[in-house]
Simulated scan of single mutants.
Amino acid sequence: MKLILTTEVSGLGAPGDIVEVKDGYGRNYLIPRGFALRWTRGGEKQIDSIKKARDAREIRDLGTAKEVAGRLGALRVKLKTRAGESGRLFGSVTTTDIADAVKAAGGPQLDRRRIEITSPIKSVGSHRISVRLHPEVAANIDVEVLGT
């Protein structure tokens, strides 16, 4: 099945890319969630507008991405959230919470979709988070989760 991606899908592509995927993956996952559109000749015209929007949001070049990665690596991010007596959180820390905490700590504004949490953060303590700034650059952030 040929699809046009509307959002970035990890391991598949960026918005505006035309990808070939298995029918079930496209029909049952990508299209219903709004991650992709069916490829048509008319849909190809939408690719230009999708790519223009992506270029406006993205970090322009590799040098800028490396600079932002250096700033993020030196940043100490503390996130306060509700926790129980044993240090277990009520709920979990989301990518939006992390993006807001980075901004509050004096870091750059991050797109929550670029923050990758490998396993859910459900406990108090220090956690390492990865941020994809550019296709070739990923930054690691140390997030200190504090219980209140």
Rank of each mutant, 00 (worst) to 15 (best):
M1C: 03
K2H: 15
I4N: 05
I4Y: 05
L5T: 02
L5W: 07
T6D: 08
T7P: 05
E8L: 11
S10R: 10
G11M: 01
G11V: 00
A14L: 12
D17E: 14
D17F: 14
I18S: 03
V19K: 04
K22Y: 06
G24W: 08
Y25I: 00
Y25T: 06
Y25N: 12
G26L: 00
N28W: 03
Y29S: 02
Y29P: 03
L30A: 04
I31Q: 00
P32Q: 03
R33E: 09
G34C: 06
G34R: 09
A36F: 05
A36D: 02
L37M: 12
T40G: 12
R41A: 13
E44S: 04
E44D: 00
E44W: 06
Q46H: 10
Q46Y: 05
I47P: 06
D48W: 10
S49K: 13
S49D: 10
K51P: 12
K52T: 06
A56I: 15
R57S: 15
R60E: 15
D61M: 03
A65L: 04
A65C: 09
A69T: 07
K78D: 04
L79R: 02
K80E: 14
S86E: 15
R88Y: 14
F90K: 08
G91I: 07
G91V: 06
G91S: 03
V93Q: 03
V93A: 07
V93I: 09
D97M: 05
I98G: 00
I98K: 05
D100V: 13
D100S: 15
A101V: 07
V102D: 08
V102C: 09
K103V: 01
A104H: 03
A104G: 10
A105H: 05
G106A: 14
G107D: 09
G107H: 12
P108N: 13
R113A: 11
R114Y: 09
I117G: 02
T118V: 12
T118P: 11
K122C: 06
S123R: 05
G125E: 02
G125F: 03
S126N: 11
R128N: 15
R128L: 14
I129T: 01
I129A: 04
I129K: 02
E136T: 05
V137T: 05
A139R: 08
D142H: 02
L146V: 13
